[in-house]
Design a protein around this nucleic acid. Structure first.
Length: 421
RNA sequence: GGAGAGAUGGCCGAGUGGCCGAAGGCGCUCGCCUGCUAAGCGAGUGUAGGUCAAAAGCCUACCGUGGGUUCAAAUCCCACUCUCUCCGCCA
């Protein structure tokens, strides 16, 4: 959510930034905000009047007749206040509602571009493997080895699910443990295992709602299945005032993620590139505004380290204004090389939300004792999406006979297994 | 699921209709004192909105949430949520 004052005081700049990401309609803001401002003043004035009348009851020498008159006057004022409050509440609800649909301002560092085509390669690591035989795609490998079962997953849950079996399940578990171990012991993150069902206000806090309701699974009791651990972990500190000396807070959370993938019919239908449930290790940081840029870079590097340890070639894409997510101000995608698909595919998305989520979720910090609280900056990124890492390993480490060499770094987590066959 | 107790500021805790944005304590900040440390003394210390060029000041709201009663609600009434204790059930 935005600071209305900031938007109004920097209107031209803000409108231009929003336009660079496709949001062109901000005309309603000034009028609504002004209407609200005037009405708040009037309402508060009336309340003040009513308080003065009430105070008169206590004055010595107030006769019963005078009391009766005071009562009448106070009631009359009360009626005016009620009418005004109803109108004001409608205006505030309207303002709030519209504001919730305004995406974040792209950062000044974010390249301007219309869509995906405007993204720029920030850097690359490793050499995309070209195998000396016909490389298979992950679903072919998975089914051949009987470690991924799409057929039975369809039977029990429908399209876009997967069952991991045997060494496949072990590989997924090993990767999650491997990632968490590196982030907690080498990168200084605190491990979190959050609830996978959250209240609606959490989804609003991180920006999934109200705009992207059709993307979310809703359980009974108005609970939402989390689309990413970003939601519960960011909201852990909702409505809190953090201590400056505790910042940056760094969390690494493993969770299942649930996505309806509405509107992606026909895309990535084969295999498990795009499924309704996948597992992910998510990195989340709470920082001061001064350090968020640096912490964002570091978080991205922390995610990259996993790919490097697994010796998986990748490139880092800096997303342009037309392609960054609703809540993000700046975003780097990590794209891993897949020899089977002969393409780079997203395996992590690392975003700096600045104070956009913090404002929605009420997450602040006190810079120093006695000073006013300020909104923190939130940053998060996948470190990494586990399922897609399985895909990358299958495709990159496949051998001509269809077996899979286990990356060296992962072998301790696989009970010493060197080859999946 | 049943019975009972509770929810007040960064924390603890008082407050049963107006004198309460809220006693007292802790913590924190500044100052004094003390040749170190500790103790002691004094002052200050919630959030948001509005007003103002800005600050000071002033106004308004906020005592779990939402309604209600009343001229007036932290305080009375109703509903809900959450927490704690005991019982039941359960991984």
């Amino acid at each position: 959510m935005h600071d209305v004052k900031y938007l109004l005081e920097n209107y031209d700049l803000a409108a231009a930034r929003l336009e660079s990401r496709g949001y062109t309609d901000l005309g309603w803001l000034a009028e609504l905000a002004e209407k609200r401002r005037v009405m708040v003043g009037q309402r508060d004035g009336l309340r003040g009047d009513q308080k003065k009348v009430s105070d008169s009851f206590k004055l010595p020498g107030t006769t019963p007749e005078m009391r009766e008159e005071l009562r009448e006057r106070s009631k009359a004022i009360g009626l005016q206040i009620d009418a005004m409050t109803a109108e004001l509440e409608a205006i505030e609800a309207d303002l709030e509602n519209r504001l919730m649909y305004v995406p974040n301002l792209p950062d000044e560092l974010t390249p301007v571009g219309p869509d995906e085509s405007g993204n720029v390669v920030a850097r690359a690591w490793g050499t995309p493997r070209q195998l000396p035989f016909k490389a298979l795609e992950h679903w072919e490998l998975g089914e051949k080895l009987n470690i991924l079962d799409f057929e039975r997953a369809r039977k029990i849950s429908g399209a876009r699910y997967v069952i991991y079996r045997g060494a496949g399940a072990r590989l997924e578990r090993a990767l999650a443990a491997f990632m968490l171990d590196i982030h907690t012991t080498e990168h200084g993150y605190t491990e979190i295992l959050p609830p996978f069902l959250v209240l609606e206000q959490c989804m609003r806090g991180t920006g999934q709602l109200p705009k992207f309701r059709e993307e979310a699974y809703v359980a009974t009791d108005e609970m939402f299945l989390i689309p990413t651990a970003e939601v519960p972990v960011t909201n852990m500190h909702r409505e809190e005032i953090l201590d400056a000396k505790d910042l940056p807070l760094k969390y690494a959370a493993y969770s299942a993620c649930f996505r309806r993938e509405a509107g992606s019919y026909g895309r990535d239908v084969k295999g498990m590139t795009r499924v309704h449930q996948f597992q992910k290790v998510e990195l989340v940081k709470f920082t001061t505004p001064e350090t968020s840029e640096e912490e964002h870079q570091k978080l991205t590097a922390d995610a990259e380290r996993i790919l490097q340890r697994l010796e998986l070639p990748y490139r880092v894409m800096e997303l342009c204004s037309g392609d960054i997510g609703f809540s993000a101000a700046r975003c780097f995608d990590l794209e891993v090389w897949l020899p089977g698909q002969q393409a780079f595919r997203e395996i992590s998305s690392c975003s700096n939300f600045k104070d956009f989520q913090a404002r929605r979720a009420g997450i602040r910090y006190r810079p120093a004792p006695g000073e006013k609280p300020r909104f923190v900056h939130t940053i998060n990124g996948s470190g990494l999406a586990v399922g897609r890492t399985v895909i990358a390993i299958l495709e990159n480490y496949q051998q001509e006979d269809g077996s899979i060499v286990v990356p060296t770094a992962l072998r301790p987590y696989m009970g010493g297994l060197e080859v999946i066959r």
